[in-house]
Design a protein around this nucleic acid. Structure first.
Lengths: 165, 165
DNA sequence: TTATCGTAGATATATTTTATCTCCGATAGT
DNA sequence: ACTATCGGAGATAAAATATATCTACGATAA
């Protein structure tokens, strides 16, 4: 049970995109170089982020990515769901249907119609996590970062991404 | 990001152990046969459950497993932690330390001493899930099941496990 | 004494994750 | 119209994890 690193890379990248003007973009090349990973690797995540409408792409020369909606409308959960997919963490294998005392061809209603209680609990547990992650937006993260992280470094980062403009 | 099936098998098994008298046990053999899995597979999970003090074992002939504490003191989270381990779901790879503009030998304090904000959010998200799963106990599950599942089937299950007494 | 049970370890397979490279098509700038 | 640049898709490969079983071992209650 682990989140993939893609979530981490994505969130960091989105943070870099916050400062980008509406008419500008940052290319995968720069995002990858800045973080020391390959372009093809990072682009995997951006394809997913785009599918979810979190970022939008501008093709062609001087193209790249920018945020597709306001930072207040991009939550941690949106990113997790984009990268990890929408499948619930707990996929019930319906273990109960394999009980030896059951006739597999004529399962009782209690084992087919009514949902597995264990499954329900796990789904609700995930919902609790989801609720919290939905409450944390990119807007919040950016403001936290700008107040807590060294200003010089933030400026250096911004300058690096816009060094070729 | 998926829970392993071990969590599901474990919870079902623990449910079967709820009805067992204090001086009795159920063997891996029966638990495995009842659910249609191999003994060695299921025993993997019971080794973990034992290490966490959720079940206790009685060796030798007529031995087996029983719950090690009251059902009210066994939560879903206890089981998840026993099976999945105590590692947090989100392990921060400290991606930020690889930023190209940084000198890896002289990282700024903001990147070493203060914790990664993204990491903190993820840890808190996990804590939310944990809190919920801690609130759902085996006692609760057993009472839900006994009120919602067909009584005939529950009795048949109990009879099967105690058929050799 | 012995059959039974839990424990540990080796093994095999399948799936997922991580990561990179290559090729293709679209397009913005010249 | 040309072309360098960019995103997008797919193939690939190594590493890690999950799933599942078999075998051998040691303890012990009957």
């Amino acid at each position: 049970m682990q989140f993939s690193v893609g979530v981490e890379y994505s969130l960091h990248c989105l943070l870099y995109l916050v400062d980008v003007q509406d008419d500008r973009t940052i290319g995968i090349k720069d995002l990858a170089a800045y973080q020391g990973v390959s372009e093809s690797y990072l682009s995997k995540f951006f394809t997913k982020l785009k599918k979810r409408g979190i970022v939008e792409s501008v093709p062609g020369a001087k193209g790249g990515y920018r945020l597709a909606r306001p930072t207040s409308e991009i939550s941690f959960w949106d990113v997790v769901e984009a990268i990890e997919g929408s499948e619930p963490f707990f996929k019930c294998s319906e273990v109960r249907q394999n009980e030896i005392i059951l006739d597999k061809n004529h399962l009782p209603d209690s084992h087919t119609k009514s949902p597995c209680l264990i499954h329900l609990v796990m789904l609700e547990a995930e919902a609790q996590m989801k609720k919290y992650l939905q409450s944390k937006t990119l807007e919040w993260l950016a403001s936290e970062v700008s107040s807590k992280v060294d200003g010089t470094h933030l400026r250096a980062t911004r300058d690096w991404f816009s060094r070729n403009l």
